[in-house]
Design a protein around this nucleic acid. Structure first.
Length: 688
DNA sequence: GCACCTCGAGTTCA
DNA sequence: CTCGAGGTGC
C-alpha cells in the first residue's frame, strides 16, 4: 500500500512539473506551438489524482491556482515599501531635461539608462516567503493596496514556488498585470454573446478581472504579467537595475524582453520613437516607455520627490485625438465662487470612454484657443483621463459659430463678479450665492474633509432644494421624518445617512478645517494648522504674524485665514457646529494618521548637542511622528542622531552599524513631509 | 527676481 | 490629471 502511495506521489510530481514546464514555454518563452488542449489535459489528470489523494495536495500545486473559494470582500495590504508612481513626460524635450537634471545632480557626463516598455495594465506587488508565493496586492494609493492573492494565483505566469537555488528566498517583486489583445477580444466577444457590456479597453478588462471576488472567474480571463522591479530580496544585493531584471528572469518570472540599456539619452529617445511607431505590432497595449537610471547607487543619490523617484520618468505616447462639435458652453460656479466655463460636446468615444464634456478653465483659455459655440474641435484625454480641447478646426467653420463671452454677473445668483489682478478666474463675490453654498456643503462632506458617506452632490442638491438645510451646521439637525419625504430615500438610506452624519462629529480636527473651506487651506495646510494651534479657539485668535511664523504659510494663506475668521457667517457656522458637538480641536495624540507617522516603531537615540533644537524638543518631534526615543544604543536602535561633541553613544552606533543621522539630515526628515515617504523607503531597505 | 517644488482647486467617467 | 498660484531658497 505504502509503495502505491509513493508511486502516485511520483506521478503527481511529474504531472506538476510538466504543467510548470508547459507554463514556462507558453509564458516565458512565448512559444506559440504550445496548445491549451495539452495543458487542459494535464491539468485534468492532476485534478483527478489529487481528488483521490487529497493528502498529497500541496499549496504550490498548479491546481491550487483555481481551487480557492470566492471571498466576501478584499482585505488590504500595507506595502512594506511604498509603490510610488512615476513622473510623466509628454515630449522628447522633457526627456532631454530629465537627462540634464540627472547628470547635473550626479555631476557626471555619462549615465546609463534602461528603457522599458510601459505596459498598460495595473501594477501589483508579489510577496514570496521561503520561495512560496504567499501574498499579492494592487498598488492602491501607493501605501495601502488590496489583497488580490487569490486572483493572482490564477495567473499562470506567476510561479507559485521558486525553483532551484531560489527555492528558499524571501522577496517582494513588482510587476504589471495585463490582458493581451487576443484575450481581450475573446473576452469581449464572449461578453457580447451573453448580452453583457464589453470592456472598453484591455486595461479595464484586466483591472475588472483582478478585482473579481470569485477567483474562478479570474482564472477564465487569462491575465498575464510582466515583472519589472524588486522591492527587496532578503540577503541579496544588486548594483544595477539590469542585474535586478536578470535576477527576475532567472528566478522564473516573466520579464519583458524589449528592455534596453543605453549610455546616452539619444539612444533612449530613438528607443521611444521606435516603439511609438511600432506599438501596434505588439500583442499587448503599451502607453509609453519607462526610463530609469541603471545604477542603484546613483538612484539612491538622486532620491525622491513627493511625486516619485528623481531617477525615473515615464515617457507617454501622444494620446489619441478625436474630432467633435462644441454644442454649447455653460458656466459652473464653484465653492470659492470661481466661474468655470465647460464645453458641452457632441458625445464621442475617446480612448475607451464616451466624452461629452470638457473643461475650458477660464476666459483666457477660450480666447487663446479661439473656441466658439458650434466649432468643430479636436479633443484628447490628458493623461488618458481628463478630456481637453486641443484645438479648433477653423477651416470647418460655417460662419454661424458664436463667440463666447464670460458673463458679468453670476449666472446663479445674479450677483457681482470680479477678476482680481493677475488672476485667471472670475469669481462670484456673493458669499450667500446658492451655488457657492451648495458646493461648500458638498466639499464639507467630501472624502478628504468630513467624509460623510451617502452625502454626495445628488443628495446635497436634494437637501438644499427641499429647504431642509442651508449650511453644513443644519446637517446635524436632520431627522428621519425630514429625510423620508425626499425622493429615492428609503428607510435604509435614511438610517445610513443619519449614522454617517453622526459619525462625522468625531472626525479629526484637521478634517473639520478642510471642511470649513478656508481659501488656500487644503489637506496639508489643515494638518499644519491643526498641529500648531490644536483648537479652533486658538486658531481663531491667531494673528497674521503668528500665522506667518509657520513654515509653509506666507502672506496669502495667513491673510486668507485671518479674514475667514472675521466673516460673521463663518463664525456663525462654527458656533452651530460646536453646539451640536462636532469636534473642534485635537483631544488626544491619536489624531495623526498612519500616513503621517513615517517614524512609526522606529527607535532613535540622541547624542551630542543639537544646534537648532533642545533635546526635549527633538524628542517631542520624534514622538509626534510616531518614533520612540531611548537612551541607550542597542541592536534595536534604528537611528542615532548626532550633534556637536557626541558622546560614547556615537562610538557604539558605529560599532553596531546603526544608521547615523547628522543634524541637517535629521532636521530635513522632521520638516519636509516630502522626504518622509523616501524615509519610509530607506527604513524598509535598512530592515533587510 | 527667478527657478523649483508643493499644494489647492477644478475636473471626467465608469 | 493638470493648471495656476503660493512659498522657499538661491
Amino acid at each position: 500500500m505504502g509503495e502505491d502511495l509513493g508511486k502516485v506521489k511520483k506521478q503527481i510530481e511529474e504531472l506538476r512539473d510538466k504543467i510548470r514546464y508547459h507554463n514556462h514555454l507558453y509564458y516565458v518563452l512565448d512559444n506559440p506551438e504550445i496548445s491549451d488542449y495539452k495543458y487542459d489535459n494535464l491539468m485534468n489528470q492532476l485534478i483527478d489524482l489529487e481528488a483521490k489523494h487529497q493528502e498529497l495536495i500541496t499549496p504550490d500545486s498548479p491546481t491550487r491556482r483555481v481551487g480557492a473559494q470566492p471571498i466576501a470582500a478584499f482585505g488590504t495590504i500595507t506595502h512594506t515599501i511604498p509603490m510610488l508612481s512615476l513622473n510623466n513626460s509628454y515630449s522628447i524635450e522633457e526627456l532631454r531635461t530629465f537627462d540634464l537634471r540627472v547628470r547635473r545632480s550626479l555631476s557626471l557626463d555619462e549615465v546609463q539608462y534602461i528603457s522599458e516598455l510601459k505596459i498598460d495594465g495595473l501594477a501589483v506587488s508579489l510577496i514570496y516567503e521561503g520561495g512560496q508565493f504567499v501574498r499579492g496586492a494592487t498598488r492602491g494609493d501607493g501605501f495601502v493596496g488590496e489583497d488580490v492573492t487569490h486572483n493572482l494565483r490564477t495567473i499562470r505566469s506567476i510561479p507559485l514556488r521558486l525553483s532551484g537555488e531560489f527555492s528558499h528566498l524571501d522577496l517582494e517583486v513588482r510587476g504589471e498585470v495585463y490582458m493581451s489583445l487576443k484575450d481581450f477580444q475573446r473576452l469581449n466577444e464572449e461578453k457580447v454573446s451573453v448580452g453583457e457590456e464589453p470592456f472598453a479597453n484591455p486595461r479595464n478588462a484586466a483591472a475588472g478581472s483582478l478585482r473579481q471576488l470569485d477567483p474562478r472567474i479570474t482564472a477564465n480571463r487569462r491575465l498575464n504579467i510582466f515583472l519589472y522591479g524588486i522591492a527587496y530580496v532578503r540577503g541579496k544585493e544588486f548594483s544595477t537595475h539590469w542585474e535586478e531584471l536578470e535576477f527576475l528572469r532567472k528566478a522564473g518570472f516573466v520579464v519583458n524582453p524589449e528592455s534596453k540599456l543605453s549610455s546616452d539619452i539619444k539612444d533612449v529617445i530613438s528607443f521611444c520613437e521606435h516603439w511609438g511607431d511600432m506599438r501596434d505590432r505588439l500583442p499587448y497595449e503599451i502607453d509609453g516607455i519607462v526610463v530609469k537610471v541603471d545604477s542603484l547607487v546613483q538612484q539612491e543619490r538622486l532620491g525622491f520627490t513627493a511625486k516619485g523617484p528623481r531617477w525615473a520618468i515615464a515617457y507617454k505616447f501622444p494620446p489619441k485625438q478625436v474630432k467633435t462639435r462644441v454644442k454649447d458652453i455653460i458656466i459652473q460656479v464653484g465653492r470659492t465662487g470661481a466661474l468655470t466655463p465647460l464645453a458641452l460636446l457632441e458625445p464621442v468615444e475617446v480612448a475607451g470612454s464616451i466624452v461629452s464634456k470638457a473643461t475650458l478653465h477660464n476666459e483666457d483659455y477660450i480666447k487663446e484657443k479661439n473656441i466658439r459655440i458650434g466649432d468643430m474641435v479636436i479633443i484628447q484625454k490628458a493623461g488618458d483621463i481628463i478630456p481637453e480641447v486641443v484645438k479648433v478646426l477653423k477651416d470647418e467653420r460655417q460662419g454661424n459659430e458664436d463667440p463666447f463671452k464670460m458673463p458679468d454677473i453670476c449666472p446663479v445668483c445674479g450677483g457681482e463678479v470680479s477678476r482680481s489682478d493677475g488672476e485667471a478666474t472670475k469669481r462670484c463675490l456673493n458669499i450667500s450665492c446658492a451655488a457657492r453654498l451648495k458646493e461648500s456643503l458638498i466639499h464639507f462632506a467630501s472624502r478628504d474633509a468630513m467624509d460623510i458617506e451617502g452625502l454626495g452632490p445628488a443628495t446635497a442638491n436634494q437637501l438644499i432644494d427641499a429647504g431642509l438645510i442651508h449650511d453644513a451646521g443644519d446637517l446635524y439637525h436632520l431627522n428621519e421624518e425630514m429625510l423620508l419625504k425626499l425622493e429615492r430615500m428609503g428607510d435604509k438610506s435614511v438610517e445610513n445617512l443619519l449614522k454617517a452624519i453622526e459619525e462625522s462629529k468625531g472626525r479629526d480636527f484637521s478634517r473639520l478645517l478642510i471642511g470649513l473651506g478656508i481659501r488656500h487651506v487644503g489637506k496639508e495646510g489643515a494638518q499644519l494648522l491643526a498641529r500648531h494651534f490644536k483648537s479652533i479657539e486658538t486658531l481663531k485668535s491667531a494673528t497674521f504674524e503668528e500665522l506667518k511664523k509657520i513654515h509653509e504659510i506666507g502672506d496669502v494663506i495667513a491673510n486668507s485665514i485671518v479674514s475667514f475668521f472675521k466673516e460673521e457667517r463663518n463664525l456663525y457656522l462654527i458656533q452651530k457646529l460646536k453646539e451640536v458637538g462636532v469636534k473642534m480641536g485635537i483631544e488626544d495624540s491619536t489624531e495623526l494618521s498612519t500616513k503621517e507617522l513615517p517614524f512609526e516603531d522606529k527607535v532613535f537615540v540622541l547624542t551630542g548637542k543639537l544646534e537648532t533644537l533642545t533635546r526635549g524638543e527633538a524628542q517631542k518631534r520624534i514622538e509626534e511622528l510616531g518614533g520612540k526615543v531611548s537612551s541607550n544604543v542597542s541592536k534595536k536602535t534604528d537611528f542615532v542622531v548626532v550633534g556637536e561633541e557626541p558622546g560614547l553613544k556615537y562610538d557604539r552606533a558605529l560599532e553596531l552599524g546603526v544608521t547615523i543621522l547628522k543634524e541637517p539630515k535629521f532636521l530635513e526628515l522632521l520638516d519636509k513631509p516630502i522626504e518622509k515617504k523616501a524615509v519610509r523607503l530607506s527604513f524598509s531597505t535598512l530592515l533587510e
